[in-house]
Amino acid sequence: MNLINEWAFIGVFLAVAWVLPVLPLVVSWVFRPRKPNALKLATYESGVETVGDTWVQFKVQYYIYGLVFLIFDVELIFLFPWALAYNQLDFFAFGAGLLFIFLLADALIYAWRKNALEWT
């Protein structure tokens, strides 16, 4: 099986897998009752009328976690080809990988020491 064929399977899979969650929704759309009213369609929060806007400013902490995650994610992507070829590599390659992971750990230590990982 060549490469494009492999991915043709994924493509067909994607096309078929779409149908599977949509089908029960369609069946439900046919059979379910429809009696909406203003109260029913109100936002369900604490039992009282919703106050204020939902889409407001959020904690900056989520963003910092997101940033730290992004940087780690990119570094991990670099490590995958290294790990994949590791069988055929010599000690020099191990050293290069070591240095790379060391710098990764360095970034983690910095974030830790600067309290960027505290959930406040």
Binding site: F92, F100, D106
Partner: peptide, 26 residues
């Protein structure tokens, strides 16, 4: 992908960019 991995840590090829990218990310 294996070729990519070998090239990334080969002293004659991309080992310096590989490590510099790590520094850049830090």
């Amino acid at each position: 992908t294996v070729d990519l991995g070998v090239a990334l840590v080969d002293g004659d090829q991309y080992v310096l960019p590989f490590l510099v990218s790590s520094l850049l990310l830090t």
